[in-house]
Amino acid sequence: MTALKLLSAAILGVAISAPALAAGYPEKPVTVVVPFPAGGASDTTARVTTQKMQESLGQPIVVENKPGANGSLGAGQVAKAKPDGYTLIVGSIGVYAINPALYKSLPYDPTKDFDLLTVAVRTPNVLVANPSFPANNVQELVAYLKKNPEKVTFASSGAGSSDHLTAALFWQKTGTTGVHVPYKGGAPAITDLIGGHAEVSFQNLGAVSNHIKAGKLKLLAITSDKRNSAFPDTPTMKEAGVEGVEVYSWQAVAAPKGLPADVKGKLEQSLTAALNSPDVKGKFSDIGFEVVASTSGQFSEFLGQEINRWKNVVETGKITADQ
């Protein structure tokens, strides 16, 4: 086979030239699978982080977009990949926590098929409304919803998206109802919200902060545990009187189950260093992301809580997204 290999290499005119590094991982380029199209939040997280990681790992990192089926297509492929540290995944809360709560059959089990590495970044959701919407704060909204049950339209970036489930959680905690209007992604939902075709929505802070500043959207509350420095006058959900709607959208890194200990250690080290470097932190904070850089232990504990919580929301709200 070596002869064949050489021959093909010669035909292709491709010189395989790996920089001579000390023995050990990584000896060749690392592939990071993003189970969403290029340009989205997971893609941005992966590209910003890996650009920095290349420096410490000394090998190029290739970001590969494998979109499909709410991220479960790419995640399923990574789950089946060889656990040698050359295939990683950067996925969202949807891939790790919501899909398992929502779908009966998934091509992967995030708690069993992955070696969880780190929760890289997170961003809170915000409750926004069209400026002409009558309610100006959370209490007014709750009162308005109670007076007009099944009337107010809540835009979301899709059936079973994190903002859909946040809205469902909000209804459950406040004993209200609304009309869920799903869109194909966050952008068209925000567009219709600005245009006044839909009334209220939970959106990622980073996606709407400019619209809020420009006065195109009205900010009612933020779902983080503390107020946000960019909007210091906006109360958290808890301050506004609604308990238990503390929600973040997060992006995390994992590898197929069974990484060798030294590879795992090296990856964790490189990830933490990259995420905590000032320029990476700055880039993330510019787009409303907060670096978490949790340890793998913290990640798996957190993941367990998240899956349970969304399972509850899905069951209580009788939310279905597949047959």
Binding site: M1, L4, K5, S8, I11, L12, G13, V14, T31, V62, E64
Partner: peptide, 27 residues
């Protein structure tokens, strides 16, 4: 041969399309 070389250089090397130059049977 030129066509194959062109594809390997442009798509795999140049544009980074994850096409395996040699497949799983070559180990």
């Amino acid at each position: 041969v030129l066509l194959v070389a062109f594809c390997a250089l442009v798509f795999v090397k140049g544009l980074g399309v994850p096409l395996p130059l040699l497949g799983s049977w070559f180990g």
